[in-house]
Structures are given as structure tokens and as C-alpha cells.
Design a protein around this nucleic acid. Structure first.
Lengths: 217, 217
DNA sequence: GACTGTGAATCTATTCACAGCG
DNA sequence: CGCTGTGAATAGATTCACAGTC
């Protein structure tokens, strides 16, 4: 597990910055702006302009001196890069607090993500519909996922139930798991795990606050 | 905004890994294990053993040949490093789906985080209590935050309301904002912002899935 | 023999300097 | 000029090689 693993041919750090760029250039597009310079973007995004130019270079976007980059092109290419221009279907496992929050999150629409079904162990919940997404029993996971040809799953069960659920997802032929459980999952090598652990974010903030109170440098 | 900004004297990447280490060594501690080798930890965590040794070196933990690292010491030092051994009070702004999910999240207890009050614009919600945390009107934010001497805030309002809420937090003397809104906030330099943007996680997963379908290398 | 830990080497990402173009 | 874009320099993080210690 090396720290700078490239995806396709893009540095992972570049991929991580793409959503920020996209959000902003979409906004500029709505405002009717045709072209924008890296300096202008940098101002809003708190990223160095040179960094933006390098990133745009990586994804094959070329700008023009004096004018800058074409906004339409930026939107198209970045969306394509992230595959956010096509709808990606996903299932969600674990319809607790967090699961429901994600089912209700409207932002996914602009990220090409559609949650097509949810699953939960609790029989009190199954049968319900949350935000027009129906919640099924866990036993139905594999057949439904297979029938809908879903490749991606969002895992929001309790830490204790995480591994068992992951096993079910693997059996169902899921290729990528977005893991919100905070547990490290063991799965076959060809299944992609993306850990979304809020503890790491909190750790960085805690450490910065501490350093601020008693600056060590 | 350089990519490897150090916190205190620790590499930021090390800080990000600390929660993983802590989770595991706490578990081992509960199991009554006294010492553990970096190789053993590496096996479970899918991180290279040498990386773990380097990280432990950075935070000043020293192990012993043949035996490994003392589990108790690991727990103590890592907790101290993250300031998760003392309780840090925080307020939460935006008691919608996500806000409620976080208010109900039991894991914060083991991260030294306690949400002492919540705030929301919606008068239909204010006055309620979610998980024993009472929800107040936004106008009460500054006085309450000041009285309770809260340094940290969790921001879970809608993107549109994000900047206005951030301004209120700054006025209330908040020093660190954990930003779940996906909006880039502009605040004075001495206020620390930690962005917790799920879009970046999704971006990485999307890109990996795409690369997997048509491996570019 | 089984581990840690350090200094050097490597790899990755960021930033700089400046050439090139409209 | 004002901006992009490239190749070189720097900074940062990981990994290697191996010496040291229990």
C-alpha cells in the first residue's frame, strides 16, 4: 500500500481535488461565464494556481493564454474523468441514522450516483421506504443486486456487522464498497474498498487544535 | 496550501493513520495482550510494517526487540497525541438528517468528543432534544458557545446556509470548524477548518471503478 | 533469532523559473 | 502584457538496507 498510488494515470491527489474544481466550474457555468483563468479559480478554492494548471494538464485540458480555460470543457472533462456524467447505480446496506441521511442526500444526483435499493437486518424497518428507496431484508441482497446489475455498495451498518455484510456484498458480485463503518474489511483483492472514516478527519482537526493551543514550532 | 503540511512536528499522513492504530490496539488491550510487533499490526491493518515503526518513532514510542511494542503504552501515547484522552466539547450547527446522525453516533465517546448543544434555523426543531442534546435557535449560538467555552463546532447545515453559519461561529469565538457542508468556507486565518467532504471519497472510488473496468496500465 | 530503529535511497507530489503564445 | 504549460528543483513521504539490541 504505497502512499501515492495512481489511478489510471492520474495522481490520487489530483482525483481528490477534482470534485472541488467541478463544483466551482459548474457554478461559473450557471452564471454564464465562458472562460476562467487558473488564478481566478485559485482565489476561490484556496489552492495554488500552478497546482490547478498541473491538474488540468494531467486530465488533458488545455487552456489559452490571455483567456484561460473554457468552462464548458472543464465541466465535461472533469465529469468524464470521474464518470459522474453517467448514472452509477448503488445499493445501501444499513438503514440506520447515517444510512438514512445518505438516502436523503440530494447531492448524489450531481455526482452520478443513484441509490436503487437499501437493506437492513431489522425486520421493523424492512418493507418501509425512505425517500422513495425501499428497504429490503438482508437475505434479498444477492438476488436483487444481481438482477439490477449493481456494481457498487454503500456500507453503513454497525462496526460489528460490517465484515459479515461485506462478505454478503462480495457474494453478490459487488465490485466496489464505500465503507462508512470504520472497520477494516477483508475482501478479495479484486474488490475495491473506499474507506470513509470520519475519525481520520477528526484526528487531523484535534491535532491542529492542540498544536494551535501550544504551538510546537 | 502545501500538500504535506506538518502538524506540530508530525507528518499529516501519520496523524491520519493514528486512529486506525488506536482502534486496533484498544481492541488488543481489551483482549489482554501485553505487547505486539509491527508485523502483527501490519497484517491486520494492511499497512507496511516499516511504516508503522516509522510512525511510532515519530510519536516517540519505542519498542523492544523480540517482544515488540507495549500495548498499554501505544494506547496512552496515541490518545494523548490526538488529545482523545481528554473530553473536547463541541457544538453542532444544523440538526437535519446528517446532524442527527452525528448526534446519535456513539463512537465519539471513544474519540473524546462530546456534543454539548445543537442549533438549527427551523423553529419546528428548536426546543426538541435529540439523543439528550437539546436543539436551540441559531440566535442563541454565540451566548451559549461563549458560556460553555466551546472551541470546536460541527457544521452540518445546507450548502447555501454554510457561509452565514460559519460567520456566526467565528463571531462566537469558535477556533475549529469540522465542515460537512461541502462548501468552501472563508474565515479568518486563525480559525481552523477541517473539510469532511464525502465527494472526494466518492471521486476516488468512482475513478478506481472506472480504471478497473478499463485498466489503463 | 526476532524484533526495533536509523540513515540513505526512492518515489510522489508540489512548487519554481521561465519559455511560448495570443 | 497576461496567461498557459513544461522541465527542473524542492519538499515530503515511503521504502530499503542493515546495524543494533534483547
Amino acid at each position: 500500500m504505497s502512499y501515492g498510488y495512481k489511478i489510471g494515470s492520474l495522481p490520487i491527489t489530483t482525483v481528490q481535488r477534482l470534485p472541488n474544481y467541478l463544483r466551482l466550474v459548474r457554478e461559473l457555468q450557471r452564471e454564464g461565464l465562458e472562460a476562467v483563468s487558473s488564478a481566478r479559480l485559485a482565489e476561490t478554492l484556496r489552492v495554488e494556481a500552478i497546482q490547478i494548471r498541473k491538474d488540468f494538464g494531467y486530465i488533458g485540458i488545455t487552456g489559452r493564454p490571455k483567456t484561460g480555460y473554457r468552462v464548458d470543457e472543464l465541466v465535461d472533462v472533469i465529469e468524464q474523468c470521474l464518470s459522474w456524467n453517467r448514472v452509477q447505480d448503488a445499493i445501501l446496506v444499513g438503514a440506520g441514522n447515517l444510512g438514512r441521511a445518505l438516502m436523503g442526500y440530494r447531492g448524489f444526483a450531481t455526482h452520478g450516483l443513484r441509490i436503487v435499493a437499501a437493506f437492513d437486518v431489522d425486520p421493523g424497518i424492512t418493507g418501509e421506504s425512505v425517500n422513495e428507496i425501499s428497504v429490503h431484508a438482508l437475505s434479498e441482497l444477492a438476488p436483487i443486486a444481481r438482477r439490477l446489475k449493481v456494481r457498487m455498495a454503500i456500507l453503513t451498518v454497525s462496526p460489528e456487522a460490517a465484515q459479515a455484510a461485506a462478505d454478503k456484498l462480495v457474494d453478490a458480485g459487488i465490485e466496489g464498497i464505500w465503507n462508512f463503518t470504520g472497520k477494516r474489511l477483508s475482501v478479495p483483492d479484486d474488490v475495491i474498498i473506499q474507506d470513509q472514516d470520519i475519525a481520520t478527519g477528526l484526528a487531523v482537526l484535534s491535532a491542529k487544535l492542540t498544536a494551535r493551543a501550544a504551538p510546537l514550532r
